[in-house]
């Protein structure tokens, strides 16, 4: 044998079999989820505008004419979440298989809190998302959502009612904090996973990821706080 031999399996199989393939999938689905988080936040921030603005926005989203698009977006997001979770579970298993005997003593040399806790922040955020949907979209938790008319939810009233409960607000703030540590590591790390690293840009990317994560945290946390201190009534 004298040249590099490659196992003849289908290239998609080969790609996904490799940890790098799974990480690439996580990075790509991560980008979609990040995009959603950003869009969701921008939508939510309309609560600070004219009292009717956010409800108009909600009505626009729920307009039956847009239902097709909404479901396309929702399906894509669900698929991304699903793939993100499946790949992460497979990698989690790989990690456990790769070191069956743990160290008696182990220090961290460089790992950030965010990078070490991805496997905790991820599931907690997922649980939070489920709660969030049950809480404010379906209304299975907490006060029943109010509607202005068919397909016109009274988002503003629902948010105010929901965040008037300090326990729920506290849980939101905690979950958002975790989401943002998850985003911080994920945001710069996806560039590395997809093969981009440069001594000049990577430190800036890390900085950018941190700033973005903090801004998103501030934006999201500001809403329950604003409700509780009475800024949004």
């Amino acid at each position: 044998m004298s040249a590099i031999a490659i196992n003849p399996v289908h290239r998609v199989v080969r790609f996904y079999e490799a940890p790098i393939g799974k990480k690439a999938i996580m990075a790509l689905t991560g980008v979609m989820l990040f995009g959603y988080v950003l869009a969701h936040l921008l939508g939510n921030l309309q609560i600070y505008g004219d009292p009717q603005q956010i409800n108009k926005y909600a009505a626009f989203l729920h307009n039956p004419a847009n239902a097709g698009l909404l479901w396309v977006a929702r399906s894509a997001l669900l698929l991304a979440v699903g793939m993100h979770i499946v790949a992460s579970l497979q990698l989690w298993k790989l990690k456990n298989d790769a070191r069956p005997v743990a160290y008696v003593k182990k220090e961290d040399a460089a790992a950030t809190y965010a990078s070490r806790t991805m496997m905790w922040s991820g599931p907690i955020v997922a649980a939070f998302v489920i709660f969030h949907v049950l809480h404010l979209t379906v209304g299975a938790v907490g006060p029943l959502p109010q509607e202005i008319g068919p397909n016109e939810p009274n988002v503003r009233a629902n948010v105010i009612a929901g965040f008037s409960n300090p326990a729920i607000s506290a849980f939101y703030i905690l979950a958002i904090a975790l989401l943002c540590t998850h985003l911080y590591h994920g945001l710069w790390s996806m560039f590395q996973s997809l093969g981009f690293s440069h001594p000049r840009y990577t430190p800036k990317l890390k900085m950018g990821a941190a700033i973005f994560a903090i801004l998103i945290a501030i934006g999201n946390c500001s809403i329950p706080i604003a409700v509780m201190v009475g800024l949004v009534k």
């Binding site: 790098i20 790989l94 790769a98 460089a110 990078s115």
Partner: peptide
């Protein structure tokens, strides 16, 4: 059976 890189930097 090596694990997967998660960009931690250790």
């Amino acid at each position: 059976l090596f694990g997967s890189c998660t960009n931690i930097g250790e």
